[in-house]
Design a protein around this nucleic acid. Structure first.
Length: 569
RNA sequence: CGGGACGUAGCGCAGCUUGGUAGCGCGCAGCGUUCGGGACGCUGAGGUCGCGGGUUCAAAUCCCGCCGUCCCGACCA
């Protein structure tokens, strides 16, 4: 490719609307251009990289035995109504909806369980056909409330979605493991550093699912990982080791006047005790019964954990009116002396000996509240949000919080979709059973951004070879020197002959601009042909990722490039 | 959806408070000088000031409405 003809104008200055490094650099280097919020055109360079990622995904899916199909982007609403997701998505306003000429309700596909499940059911009817894994790489549409950071969170994005169908749970687990292995291969080939985390199983309990998180400062997702073992989890799902039980305190409880102290902050300010000593008693209704949920005052309750701890009970936080109804005083609730109220406590409560709690009396708190003497706990659970430097549940090491971008998600669905969609097969015993499914997503276009987040510097992009739009740039430093141009053209032609993906910067630009653009676009290898080198029979090579420079004899330039490429990350 | 900000030439911005000829840098075109880390000179092209309405002799500027874009929080590949 000749850069003088390439449809790509790099931007000298940063576009104002771009904050995240990947967004900023992909715009500057002319990989993408925005059309509307969260919707982008892939320019020639961007499309090449996108296709490379896509191909890596395809190869690993095929290797894992999945079969590629292409489902439509335009979907009928009917199966979505059967699974209840038409209504759910409508409530979230997450789906783009449209109507055809006859007024039939249609949607733009945000995901395809409702299409693939009937499809497989229609084609296959026997356990003898199973297992099967169907995937596609296709544009998805989600009318995100807040598109963000370029490709990291777009409203139209390229996604690989795979769906496995098995006759039983054991089979599903095998299919699942194959996908997990394939995912590891995909991310590794793309040059991504990944943390695999246990994700929040969600409210429809029991689903095993894992998220594949690419570490990135601009990431929206928080995860924790242990410094000393391989434990990692989404903060929503992470558990921390409970502390040892403290010696119960001996001081008697004392009711103190705390006017206007509704919050933990107020209480600590007024009484001069640290937040960790204050007992947070959060009033809830659990299956219609009043309940108190206890967490240390320096901790946040994780509602998801609470739901799982008391599942399948219904959980609802008190609204203002509920306090009156149950004779509680908002801001001054404590677990002492409540009969008939369910007390659910975070494990960490065991680690404190004397607590400050609400006195169940207006403008009063009680100090020296002791577990076992002054209050009892009915249900113990891990309820608090994990935070930085919490102890690891596996080896007690230090958990560190990091930011990341979700690039893959795998689910064990079971019969969640096959059941409502009546997608069944006839099992060996002649009985009809719903398919046991798994589903597996990879954000293909998001990977492009995630790779940039992990591979860039002040000068621009620094692509891993496997996903670089081109591998080599031959840069003509002195366009006015015929000898230089001839040598550069010769090397360019020779590299093309060798099937190296190469561009030649033959533009009428100063050398400085060409260097800056080569660094910005991020070709793994730069070959600089200039008067200085040509006069001594050499060319200069640069490895973008490390900045390492070497010199090679002119006549061996192509060999030297191949060699350097082989060493490129 | 709540909170904040912005919309003036392809890009980055000034002008708006105090209404009166639309400006700067980069980029673009021509000519010349340059030519290994975003060169220089001269000449030139390019703007419905987001859209609609209002106030006014006069609106980029003041008022109202709408649209668009980004950033911060609740949700997702």
């Amino acid at each position: 490719m000749r850069l003088s003809r390439l449809f790509a104008r790099t931007l000298r200055e940063d576009p104002v609307e771009a904050e995240a490094p990947s967004h900023r650099l992909l715009l500057r280097a002319a990989f993408i251009r925005q059309v509307i919020s969260g919707v982008y055109t892939f320019m020639p360079l961007g499309l090449r990289t996108l296709r490379k990622v896509e191909q890596i995904v395809r190869e690993e899916m095929d290797r894992a035995g999945a079969q590629e199909v292409r489902m439509p982007a335009i979907l009928p609403s009917e199966p979505w109504k059967l699974t209840g997701r038409w209504q759910a998505y409508a409530a979230e306003q997450l789906m783009f909806t449209l109507h055809d000429r006859s007024g039939r309700e249609l949607g733009l596909g945000p995901t395809h369980e409702e299409i693939v499940t009937p499809l497989v059911a229609q084609e296959y009817e026997s356990y003898r056909d199973l297992p099967v894994n169907i995937y596609q790489i296709q544009w998805k549409y989600r009318d995100e409330a807040r598109p963000r950071s370029g490709l990291l969170r777009a409203r139209e994005f390229l996604m690989k979605d795979a769906y496995s169908f098995d006759r039983d749970v054991e089979g599903m687990r095998e299919s699942y493991q194959k996908m997990v292995d394939a995912y590891r291969a995909v991310f590794s080939r793309c040059g991504l550093s990944i943390v695999e985390v246990e994700a929040d199983p969600g409210l429809i309990g029991g689903d095993v699912n894992h998220e594949f998180m690419a570490k990135a400062e601009v990431g929206e997702d928080l995860y924790v990982s242990c410094e000393t073992c391989d434990y990692a989890a989404n903060v929503e799902a992470a558990v921390a080791a409970p502390p040892d039980a403290a010696e119960p305190g001996a001081v008697p409880p004392e009711v103190v006047h705390t006017p206007g102290a509704y919050t933990v902050k107020d209480v600590t300010a007024l009484l001069g005790v640290p937040p960790a000593r204050v007992l947070k008693s959060l009033a809830h209704e659990i299956d219609g019964r009043p309940a108190l949920v206890l967490v240390p005052g320096d901790r946040e309750l994780n509602e998801g954990k609470l739901r799982r701890a008391v599942a399948p009970a219904e959980v609802r936080m008190f609204e203002d009116a509920d306090f009156d109804r149950h004779g509680m005083l908002k801001g001054f609730v404590g677990p002492q002396g409540h009969d008939g109220v369910l007390v659910v406590a975070d494990y960490r409560i065991r680690g404190g000996s004397e607590w400050v709690a609400g006195a169940n009396r207006a403008d009063h708190h009680t100090t020296g509240v002791v577990l076992g003497r002054d209050f009892e706990v009915d249900v113990w659970a891990d309820l608090a949000q994990v935070r930085d430097r919490d102890p690891c549940p596996r080896d007690g090491g230090s958990l560190r919080v990091g930011r990341s971008v979700e690039v893959g998600h795998t689910f064990q669905l079971g019969a969640k979709y096959s059941d409502p969609l009546k997608a069944t097969f006839v099992d060996e015993d002649g009985i009809e059973r719903p398919f046991v499914m798994g589903c597996y997503g990879i954000g293909v276009s998001r990977i492009v951004s995630a790779v940039v987040e992990q591979h860039h510097d002040d000068a621009g992009l620094a692509w891993p070879r496997a996903v670089a739009p081109y591998e080599v740039c031959v840069l003509i430093a002195n366009r006015d020197d015929e000898g230089v141009v001839a040598e550069a053209e010769r090397i360019y032609a020779e590299l093309e002959d060798r099937r190296v993906e190469v561009v030649i910067d033959d533009r009428e630009r100063t050398a400085g601009e060409k260097f800056a653009d080569a660094d910005l676009i991020g070709y793994p290898v730069q070959v600089v042909v200039g008067r200085r080198g040509v006069s001594t029979g050499t060319v200069d090579l640069k490895l973008r990722a490390t900045g390492e420079r070497t010199t090679a004899p002119l006549e061996r330039a192509a060999d030297a490039v191949s060699q350097l490429l082989a060493s490129a990350p």
